Amino acid sequence: MKQSKPPICNVSELISFLTAYKVDSKNIFQTSRHTAILLLIYSGRRLHDLTLLRVDPNHCIKSEDSIIFWPEFGSKTGRSDYRQSGWKFVANNTHCNLNPLFWIEQTITLLNERRSSARSSNLFITLRGAAKPASRTVIAGWVKTIFKEAGISATPGSIRSAVASKSWYDNHPLDEILARGNWQSANTFKKYYRREVINCSDPTNVSNSFTPLN
Rank of each mutant, 00 (worst) to 15 (best):
A20V: 05
K76W: 10
P133E: 10
Q3T: 11
S165L: 07
F29S: 10
T188I: 10
V11R: 02
A20P: 06
W168A: 04
G44S: 04
S4R: 06
V23T: 07
N187C: 14
L38G: 09
K2F: 09
K144G: 00
D81S: 06
I8G: 04
L18K: 04
L47V: 13
W183I: 12
S63D: 15
Y169S: 04
Y169D: 09
W168E: 02
S165V: 02
S43M: 08
K166Q: 06
Y169Q: 05
T155C: 02
S185L: 09
I152H: 01
R45Q: 03
I28L: 06
F17C: 06
H34C: 05
T19M: 03
A140V: 04
P57L: 15
T126V: 11
R180F: 13
Y82N: 08
K132A: 01
R83A: 04
S117F: 03
V90K: 02
I8H: 05
A150Q: 01
S207N: 11
Q184S: 14
N58S: 11
L174E: 01
R160H: 07
D56G: 12
E149Y: 11
I177T: 08
S121K: 11
A162E: 10
K144Q: 13
W70R: 15
S120Q: 10
Y21M: 09
V11I: 15
K62Y: 04
D170T: 06
V23F: 05
I146R: 02
R54N: 08
A164C: 00
R115M: 00
H95T: 04
K26S: 13
L53H: 08
W142Y: 14
T51L: 12
H48K: 15
P212A: 13
E105I: 01
Q84C: 12
A36E: 07
L111Y: 03
N58W: 15
P7A: 12
Q184E: 13
R83P: 01
I8V: 13
A140G: 15
S185N: 07
D175C: 14
T35F: 13
H172D: 09
C96L: 09
T35P: 06
N214H: 08
Q30H: 14
S4F: 14
D49Q: 09
N187V: 09
L98G: 00
Y42P: 01
K132Y: 10
P133F: 10
G74R: 06
V197L: 02
I28D: 05
K166D: 02
G44C: 05
N187P: 02
R46F: 15
S158N: 07
L111Q: 03
N214M: 06
L14W: 02
A131N: 04
Q30P: 13
K2H: 12
